[in-house]
Amino acid sequence: MTTIELKPSARPLADAEREAILADPGFGRHFTDHMVSVRWTEGRGWHDAELVPYAPLSIDPANMTLHYAQEIFEGLKAYRRPDGSVATFRPEANAARFRASARRMAMPEVPDELFVAACDALVKQDQAWVPAHGGESSLYLRPFMIATEVGLGVRPAKEYLFLVIASPAGAYFPGGVKPVSIWISEDRVRAVPGGVGDAKTGGNYAASLLAQAEAAQHGCAQVAYLDAVEHKWVEELGGMNLYFVYGNKIVTPTLTGSLLAGITRDSLLKVARDLGYESEESRVSLDQWRADTENGTLTEVFACGTAAVITPVGTVKTASGEWTQSGGEAGEVTMKLRGSLLDIQTGKAEDKHGWMHGIV
């Protein structure tokens, strides 16, 4: 089922109010006029797909999501192209990861065609919310699914709701790209092998908040985790994957089942090769990170994700000391990769991989 019934709002936000928001949207503060809603019921499957005015949800206090956390989500962006058209970046990859998350959380899988059609319908209806071409601003899409069955039995629900909402997003670094400081959490873990670390589910992010608060207490903007078994191998940040630059080679930690398979992460493996760099997936230990920085073989470190695209790492702090990457500045390779990926997304460079999905 890919037909989505359109029930647009009779009172969308006035043009002047929308333009005022787009002038300084921030991230996740404002939402477009509409959302897409699709229901799933056991024995019936997906049904009642519709685009409706953005509005609060009515949830029973015994809603199973509130008690047992059957919830997954995605994040992707729509960009204004040089000719005024609008395209999303790799929505098919988000759709595939959404299905993988659903399987892990014992939820029904949204067919890729329905996932993409829902995103397309919302962007097409609210295309006036996509910021103008020329900068890093975009329209951020948040597809998500929750259980809607009412009851306190511990089991997979029999009813679900899939929704897509959208929020205009400004440049992650409005004053220019600045390296962030990283706190290495050596006593807390993000996920364990066999757990739900490779699913994009809210519980993973809730579990990261305490460690993130500890990072802030140490003057750091982000927290990085080690593996749960040996507490030795670097895994990822609370919401971003990591990359290590060794001269002409870039390395990202191997997916072990406890890391999220980031779409930006995957894209950068390919973009790096396009630019003539070697790129590979390999395990990197905390000791290796520190030693290779000190001996000069590790030249840059950066984090990546949908929101920021690429974030340079400046300072790394642990309970036993700290060190600086790239002299505390954004590295040359980091910035070259960041610019190259953004140019593809915004239409300034050729899309050799067919990643951009045109909508309007």
Rank of each mutant, 00 (worst) to 15 (best):
E42M: 10
A121I: 11
L161S: 12
G354W: 01
A349G: 11
M105Q: 03
E71M: 06
V245G: 06
P53Y: 00
G202T: 12
A95L: 08
V360R: 02
W355H: 01
G26C: 08
Y68R: 12
R80W: 10
G195R: 00
Y140K: 03
M145W: 09
A228W: 01
M64W: 00
P82G: 05
R29N: 04
Y246L: 12
D126T: 06
V116K: 01
H133A: 05
G197I: 02
C119S: 11
Q325W: 00
G331H: 11
V223N: 02
A261E: 14
W289R: 00
P312I: 11
T254Q: 13
V229G: 03
R265T: 11
N248E: 15
R190L: 03
F73N: 06
R29W: 03
K348N: 13
W46I: 15
M240G: 07
E149M: 04
D227P: 10
I359D: 07
T324F: 02
T293Y: 02
S258N: 04
L242M: 15
E19V: 14
E350R: 01
C119H: 04
M240Q: 09
G195T: 07
T324Y: 00
Y225A: 03
L341Y: 09
T41D: 15
R338H: 13
I165S: 07
E230W: 03
A224N: 02
L210G: 04
V251A: 14
P108S: 07
G321E: 07
F144C: 09
G276I: 14
R97Q: 04
P91Y: 08
T148N: 02
V223I: 04
H357G: 09
T315F: 07
P156D: 13
A128E: 10
A261M: 08
V180S: 06
D227L: 01
F27P: 09
D48T: 15
L341E: 13
L163G: 06
R39Q: 12
A117N: 07
T264D: 10
R265S: 09
T201L: 00
L259A: 07
I4W: 03
I250C: 15
V309G: 14
V154C: 11
S9C: 06
D343M: 06
Y68C: 05
A147T: 08
N295M: 07
L76I: 12
Q70S: 15
A216Y: 01
A62P: 02
P156T: 10
E214D: 14
L298S: 06
L161H: 13
R39C: 11
A62T: 13
P143G: 10
E109N: 05
A319P: 04
T297D: 07
L259D: 02
M1F: 11
C119N: 14
G75P: 15
L141P: 15
T311H: 08
D351Y: 08
L66V: 06
V177R: 00
S37Y: 09
E136W: 04
R338F: 12
Q70E: 12
R142F: 06
E113D: 14
R103F: 04
R190K: 12
G238T: 04
